[in-house]
Amino acid sequence: MNVFRLAGDMMHLLSIVVLLLKITGIKSCRGISLKTQELYLLVFITRYLDIFTNFVSLYNTVMKLVFLGTSSAIVYYMRYDRIIKLTYDKEQDTFKYLLLVAPSAVLALATSHVYTVLEVLWTFSIYLEAVAIMPQLVLLQRTQNIDNLTGNYVFLLGSYRGLYILNWIYRFFTEKHYRQWLVWTCGVVQTIIYCDFFYYYFLSWQNNEKLALPA
């Protein structure tokens, strides 16, 4: 495992920690899209179905369990916690699941390497992860006074994707049989989706102002 991959995973983990701190610490999920969180849970479930059949390393297995556990916890808090659910911006979080899930499913069925349930669902998870952040970005545009934790959460998630691209470039040049066009294309698309957010994040940081995304 190279340093980019490890740093990427740590950013991903940190983004989840920041989100959980926000939700449980200040008992608020204001500005957080439940739709994005549920899509991530679906991504993890469909991707990690091989958790007990395809052992790679203890690190991978533990991380998969952590991602499954924490994303379930986040969805649970936002949906069912007596206090936290009251802070969810349901009326603003209007992105349609089907708009993201249906194309991902069609593409997975059309491009899967082999047609086994596990492989098609894995391919589906790659497509879905690429676009799962969209409800969150739309909700951010609609949120006035985005708090620091929410801005940092999205920033850390975007950093994780950027670092994975550096990891792929590194592996491309150091490993002979590392050719993953599907994963790469989706990864690049996913990172491009963050570009607009990054622009305004750095702008607000540079000017020492609160983050605001123009509608």
Binding site: R5, D9, H12, D50, N54, V56, S57, N60, M63, K64, F67, T111, S112, H113, V114, W122, Y164, N167, H177, Y178, R179, Q180, W181, L182, V183
Partner: peptide
């Protein structure tokens, strides 16, 4: 169809 991907990443 694309080549089988290495599933050693998260």
């Amino acid at each position: 169809a694309p080549a089988a991907a290495l599933k050693d990443e998260l």
